[in-house]
Design a protein around this nucleic acid. Structure first.
Length: 819
RNA sequence: GCGGCUGUGGUGAAAUGGUAAACACGCUAGGUUCAGGGCCUAGUGCUCGCAAGAGCUUGGUGGUUCGAGUCCACUCAGCCGCACCA
């Protein structure tokens, strides 16, 4: 390409040229090169929804900057990308427009890819994946079969949230404010046979291993821990006349003497059997009513507790008391045993229920070993109180009573210590078309039969008719549904549900390690070479779902001997969102800024640096068009100063000589390096601005463009490379640099050049700043103190008092404490 | 209710327990073969003062310390997550 000599910084001219150069050089193309340390770097892959906006780009800019930096540090960087290409939006678009999902997805991918390219975001494109490609989803199906073999995939009847308008199940997270997130319809409950992954079998490990993830944001770990929700307690049995006992779960067995009623979930199997004839009508009506409510509604705090007495009584084996059995919708059949013991004396929910239905309240926990005589409604935690009115356990600290009662229950065979989780099994069936077909066949003789591995992939038929009623088009594809049993060859029916798209994204990082592998989902050797992901970057909206599912997958595959690691992501960074006009940037709100606009007007480098400088990377930031202008000016200034337009014009600041200039460079190298490692991109940019200001001061003070200058200019250029890669390459070439800077070395700090001979020491009197003095570096306390006391300002502040003692921070500060 | 995060100039923000407000935006004044824009210079937390200077200042109240935006306790406000999970 012809060399262009631009008198001014012209991004339009220089940027395409360098992108072509990187492409030719194979930026981020890697192999399992053992001569360099590996670094597996990933940004979360997106759903290809069409044009991206600068809000999306923050993620990619951080990632690209970090990956380029690691490359310059000499790492063998695996930096792949792909597309989470299955999902409902493409299917809905197909229903409305008739454009097949594959067509719209491919178009969107092309658009997004172009935008990434013009922003200079580099990836290992030779490893690009799309979850909707048969090359990929056949292995998603294969993994499903592995889970099935290991009894981690199973089918059962489940009461699910069903959107009657869209004709599909909704995951709990897809119900927003009690209605379907898509169409606003109130979902109903429906009993359906659904496929689940048994994530609960891994609950303990998923929770305990969070401790290993010391390079994850605290908030994400906390959210996952809450989601798993492990509770230690006991299951206790209460006898019912003429029936099997009711088993309840409680985290507070020490409060068992305070039971004044029992509550069963309305769906509890015992309800029908124990209900007294007189209450049957009321109970049945109540059960019917709760069935029409969603779990979300039932669990809402504002929802007033309601319930109905069954007419039956249970006996509390601990004190022989006879207590009424109620049913109430605040007890969930899906959690623990679906039944509770009502202890209004130390539980706010039970207290509210007891007050509403005038049930007795007993004090059984007190702040002191003696009863206070009142129950005020504050719950005392296990290590805050003492058991009272509790028979032989009275007076014990609650924790001790917990242990004693649990032990006694086990001895008497009326209870057992146990652990319960809030986490439930992962419902992966979706009554949707645009997803991975679940590789299962239903045979009239053999029931559920997995598709043999050799028959994979079960290809998703693409010539289908989309129905306006939203029913899964697969149901009507005869060729697909009608098949034969792999065991007996008889006519059989294929599963038409597809998998939740979170299954697709639960293993894509492994696929990246050998993206073109044809015999297995990934090459175990390559996977063990690259795993774990050393740095993962993505939005906090995936704090639970995707990140928890991926951890689960990794553990399962670890147990199956397929991967060495049991945690996929060693370090996680969750970036803040970009807002504009006070709202998250989005196409629907019309407040998006598109990369094309930025690239055309200012160049990609300006857009990149602006997104880095806008604020702390982990916090949300407001987009400001003026701020973009500011960055553009900065880059123009960098260009002029390095390329040689800028000359000195006099100013009043401190003169900057060669020594100061070189020191500034090394201070900047030090600062920028530490800032990138810590993901403090905003301060890294400000450090670069400071260096450029110093360079300007040097020239204005008459400094020559000599060898020292060239060293600093080249140093600046290298430091700029991860942030503004196009400009850096251009400057590098104009300075006579060899090869591509992107593949060059990151500069290192020379501690000798950081040293100062003269330092400014701050003088405080009684902790208040009074003066600053110039001292030789390394001056001792006596010298500094003597010089400080010579200061008129210091004398005035002391006002004749003597100095009782002095605190010296070498080369920085002395504090004179007056008598 | 539980948990997490955040409170600093007009704005975005910076600050290993050691000069609060770096860097930038904005603004003011001036310069520029100066329409505008750009570029350059000086200034810009608040109060008093012509100035020199003095005092005040990191949501609030206390505490630890020679010294606190930073650590501790309590408290207020905002944001986020979970939320009748027994």
């Amino acid at each position: 390409m012809a060399r262009t000599v631009a008198p001014v910084y012209d991004p339009q001219l220089i940027e395409p040229r360098w992108r072509a150069a990187w492409k030719a050089a194979g930026l981020f193309r890697v192999t399992e090169d053992r001569s360099r340390p590996k670094f597996f770097h990933m940004v979360m892959f997106p759903y290809p929804s069409g044009p991206l906006h600068m809000g999306h780009f923050r993620n990619y800019v951080f990632g690209d900057t970090f990956a380029r930096y690691k490359l310059m540090r000499g790492y063998n960087v695996l930096n792949p990308f792909g597309w989470d290409a299955f999902g409902l939006p493409a299917e809905n678009a197909a229903i409305q427009t008739g454009i097949p999902p594959r067509v719209s997805i491919e178009k969107n991918i092309a658009i997004s890819k172009h935008e990434l390219e013009i922003m200079g975001i580099g990836f290992a494109w030779d490893r690009e994946i799309a979850t909707s490609s048969p090359d990929y989803y056949r292995w998603t199906q294969w993994l499903f079969l592995k889970f099935y073999e290991r009894r981690l995939a199973y089918k059962r009847m489940a009461s699910v949230n069903w959107c009657p308008k869209d004709n599909t199940v909704l995951a709990n997270e897809q119900i927003v404010n009690g209605v379907c997130w898509r169409c606003g319809t109130r979902p109903t409950k429906k009993d359906l046979e659904q496929w689940f992954f048994k994530i609960t079998a891994y609950a303990d490990r998923l929770l305990d291993d969070l401790d290993k993830l010391d390079r994850w944001p605290e908030r994400v770990r906390v959210m996952q821990a809450n989601w798993i929700g492990r509770s230690h307690g006991a299951e206790l049995a209460f006898t019912v006349e003429g029936q099997e006992p009711i088993r309840v779960f409680t985290t507070r067995p020490d409060t068992v003497f305070g039971v004044t009623f029992m509550v069963l979930a309305p769906e509890h199997p015992l309800v029908a059997r124990i209900t007294a004839p007189a209450q049957r009508h009321a109970v049945e009506a109540y059960v019917e009513r709760t069935r029409s409510e969603t779990e979300i509604e039932r669990l809402s705090t504002e929802h007033e507790k309601t319930g109905v007495f069954t007419g039956a009584y249970a006996i509390n084996p601990w004190n022989g008391e006879r207590v009424p059995i109620w049913i109430a919708d605040y007890v969930l059949v899906t959690y623990a045993t679906g039944a509770i013991m009502g202890v209004p004396g130390n539980d706010t929910r039970d207290l509210a229920f007891a007050r509403k239905y005038r049930l007795p309240v007993k004090e059984i926990v007190s702040r002191s070993p003696r009863p206070a005589g009142t129950v005020e409604g504050t719950v005392l935690e296990l290590d805050q109180g003492y058991a009272v009115n509790s028979g032989p356990y009275s007076g014990m600290p609650s924790r001790q009573a917990f242990e004693a009662i649990a032990a006694e229950a086990e001895k008497r065979g009326i209870g057992v210590r146990t652990v319960t989780y809030r986490l439930r099994d992962w419902l992966i069936s979706r009554q949707r078309y645009w997803g991975v077909p679940i590789p299962i066949i239903y045979c009239p003789d053999h029931g559920i039969v997995p598709v043999p591995e050799t028959d994979l992939p079960v290809v998703l038929p693409e010539n289908v008719e989309f129905r306006s009623d939203g029913r899964n088009p697969l149901l009507f594809v005869e060729d697909f549904v009608n098949t034969t049993c792999p065991r007996c060859g008889k006519a059989a029916r294929r599963e038409t549900d597809t998998m939740d798209t979170f299954v697709d994204s639960s293993w894509y990082y492994l696929r990246y390690t050998s993206a073109r592998e044809e015999r297995e989902p990934f090459d175990p050797e390559k996977a063990s070479f690259w795993m774990p992901v050393d740095q993962y970057i993505g939005g906090v909206e995936h704090a639970i779902l995707h990140l928890l599912y991926s951890r689960f997958f990794t553990k399962v595959l670890h147990d199956a001997g397929m991967v060495a690691v049991d945690e996929p992501f060693a370090a996680l960074f969750s970036q803040g969102m970009i807002l504009r006009h006070g709202a998250v940037m989005s196409k629907s709100k019309g407040n998006g800024v598109e990369p094309d606009q930025i690239v055309e007007r200012y160049g990609a480098d300006t857009g990149r640096i602006y997104e880095l400088f806008i604020g702390p990377p982990d916090q949300d930031a407001e987009w400001n068009d003026r701020g973009v202008e500011g960055i553009s000016k900065f880059l123009h200034r960098v260009f002029r100063i390095v390329v040689g337009e800028e000359e000195g014009s006099p100013h009043q600041g401190q003169p900057v000589g060669e020594v100061e200039l070189l020191r500034s460079l090394h201070e900047t190298i030090d600062k920028v390096t530490r800032d990138i490692e810590a993901f403090h991109f905003n301060t890294a940019i400000s450090a670069l601005m400071i260096l450029v200001n110093r360079m300007q001061d040097y020239l204005r003070g008459g400094g020559a463009r000599n060898e020292a200058w060239a060293t600093v200019a080249q140093g600046l250029t290298r430091l700029l490379a991860p942030f503004a890669p196009h400009l850096a390459e251009e400057l590098w070439e104009r300075q006579g640099g060899r090869g591509l800077l992107t593949f060059g070395d990151w500069p290192s700090v020379d501690p000798a050049l950081l040293a100062r001979s003269l330092v400014t020491v701050v003088v405080q009197v009684d902790g208040r700043l009074r003066d600053r003095i110039e001292m030789a570096a390394g001056a001792g306390e006596d010298d500094v103190r003597r010089r400080a006391l010579e200061s008129e300002r210091v004398k005035r502040a002391l006002a004749g008092r003597s100095v009782a003692r002095a605190v010296l921070v070498p080369d920085r500060l002395i504090n004179l404490v007056s008598a």
